[in-house]
Design a binder for these strands. Structure first.
Length: 254
DNA sequence: ATGGTAGTTGAACTA
């Protein structure tokens, strides 16, 4: 099975990119973030015609997540349980016996902003929910834009990013609390090239200069990790015309 | 040190 994650930064703009990539990459399950579409505007027909089931939860202008799958989708969750939040960032589904959780973790803006506190609080609540999900399901995959670079190896210039948003110690510790549940950062389960990133700011020719961060992750529970075959960054779509600032990440397992 | 770009919405906000 091939699973993937892609922050598309507006599905309205990126639908052609997504259809092209589905055709070439053939993922079984794909989690999208930052669709930026209300549900009535979601392009469900185009995606169905491409051969994928789809579920989504969106809002106007910001956030929004979707899951596309070759097989039927069931047991859909659209919120962290017990938390009232208009921001559409969570989509948990079951496909082919895999519990697939798609996340758009809050960005946080800056370590001294209110949004940073919201991010850390959100991650704490996420941890508790994932702990419960792991009780209920053995085969769990958590994908998404985590808005956290796990280590300095995931940052083009660690000194410039030291203690900055996406790289601060509290964010990395919050991610570690998730990994403590038994999850593996699947990308690091394999030998990888250095300076491998999934996001490059649009500004300053950052992609051309490979000034990026790896903040899009695929976490696997032990039962999945045991049969992991690969975990890669699919860099191609970032080279296309009018790209998202993120590129897809993917993992294969038996 | 600042602003650089992109998307949505319609001058400002988020990333």
């Amino acid at each position: 099975m091939k699973v993937a994650s892609w922050n598309v930064n507006s599905l309205n703009v990126r639908l052609p990119h997504v259809l092209e990539w589905l055709e070439s990459a053939q993922p079984d399950i794909l989690g999208l973030q930052e669709t930026k579409l209300t549900d009535e505007k979601f392009p469900r027909q185009a995606i169905r015609e491409a051969g994928y089931e789809v579920v989504f939860t969106g809002q106007k202008t910001y956030n929004g997540v979707a899951v596309l799958a070759r097989s039927p989708i069931s047991d859909v969750i659209t919120d962290l349980p017990g938390i009232e939040d208009p921001q559409r960032r969570v989509l948990g589904v079951t496909v082919d016996g895999v519990r697939f959780i798609n996340l758009y973790v809050p960005n946080g803006k800056a370590v001294d902003s209110d949004k940073y506190g919201y991010k850390l609080d959100w991650l704490k609540k996420l941890r508790d929910w994932l702990a419960a999900e792991c009780e209920r399901h053995e085969r769990v995959v958590v994908v998404g834009d985590f808005n956290i670079a796990p280590t300095d190896a995931d940052v083009h210039d660690p000194d410039a990013w030291r203690d900055q948003i996406l790289c601060s110690a509290p964010e990395r510790e919050a991610l570690q609390r998730l990994l403590d549940l038994g999850f593996t950062d699947s990308f690091r389960a394999f030998e990888q090239p250095e300076m491998a990133f999934s996001w490059w700011d649009y500004r300053m020719n950052n992609f051309k200069r490979n000034r990026g961060l790896r903040i899009d992750l695929i976490l696997t529970s032990p039962a999945i990790t045991a049969s992991l075959q690969s975990s890669t960054i699919e860099r191609d779509p970032r080279t296309w015309e009018r790209p998202s600032d993120h590129t897809p990440v993917a993992a294969r397992f038996a």
